[in-house]
């Protein structure tokens, strides 16, 4: 049996809101240590992995490992109407493993609304263990998420693709659209800061801009974001969710191949 409780204004729900423009259904695995959500966008271009340790929830109990397909779009839609201080409880039982129950309790505890959400069948897709993969990556950029969001906002003025390339002591974002082009150079400052750009080998990736803008939404929930690039490999965008937590989200974005 699984039971977890959270307040409506929790980071978990804010993250779900932020990823909904990419995915509407997700594979959710729960164990005694926490919850893992994985989802791929409809075109199979972006992959999202979200990890929330059990202690991040107001209450968390899972006595048996569970894996289920959840229409997170429908779930978030139902929770949106709840009071901002309301408490959300999500339950799944072993006896009836065809749906989950989501209950919303008002802050005064005088009103409870429950709804049953049918589970969906999803073909699971597993990616390799990422930390091992990233050791072989060519370049990593740790940067404040406000910088990443600002750059994505600049890029959103150009409709098309973005080329992210390593340059001497930094990286370059270049977008070419119908109305013109945009060039952003992001360099490693001389003084120690919260920016860390490490380049083992030159790399350049061409990526669909619309996905970058979706990633920027989630990075708004975190102070720092880390981009990892490697030749011919998906872009990896990682960020911790919130401060002083071990919750984290990882995006993978498949590049475009020129020619």
């Amino acid at each position: 049996m699984l039971e977890l409780k959270l307040v409506k204004e929790s980071l978990f729900l804010n993250v779900l809101e932020a990823i909904l423009d990419l995915v509407a259904v997700a594979s959710v695995s729960c164990s005694s240590t926490g919850l893992k959500l994985q989802a791929m966008d409809a075109k199979g271009v972006a992959f999202i992995s979200l990890l929330i340790p059990a202690k991040e929830f107001q209450f968390y109990h899972c006595d048996k490992d569970l894996s289920m397909g959840i229409a997170i779009g429908d779930m978030v839609e139902a929770i949106r109407s709840a009071d901002k201080d309301g408490t959300i409880t999500i339950k799944a039982s072993d006896e009836n493993f065809r749906n989950i129950t989501v209950s919303i309790e008002s802050p005064e505890c005088n009103e409870t609304t429950s709804f049953s959400l049918l589970l969906v069948t999803l073909k699971r897709f597993c990616i390799p263990e990422l930390q091992g993969l990233l050791k072989k990556y060519d370049a990593c950029v740790q940067m404040p998420s406000v910088d990443f969001m600002r750059i994505c906002k600049y890029l959103s003025n150009v409709d098309g693709d973005v080329d992210i390339s390593t340059i001497d002591k930094g990286i370059r974002f270049f977008a070419l659209g119908k109305c013109g082009c945009l060039n952003v150079k992001y360099m490693q400052p001389e003084k120690a800061t919260d920016i860390d750009i490490s380049v083992q080998a030159p790399v350049s990736l061409t990526l669909d801009l619309k996905y970058m803008n979706s990633f920027a939404k989630v990075s708004a929930l975190s102070n720092q974001v880390k981009l990892c690039l490697s030749k011919g490999q998906p872009l990896v965008v990682q960020c911790k969710i919130g401060q002083k937590t071990k919750s984290r989200i990882i995006y993978l974005l498949a590049p475009k191949i020129k020619g």
């Binding site: 897709f125 061409t206 998906p234 498949a254 475009k256």
Partner: peptide, 14 residues
């Protein structure tokens, strides 16, 4: 622009 690859193409063997 280029040819969009999918995530599955990179990790198909795993």
């Amino acid at each position: 622009s280029g040819v969009q690859r999918s995530i599955k193409e990179f990790y198909r063997s795993t």
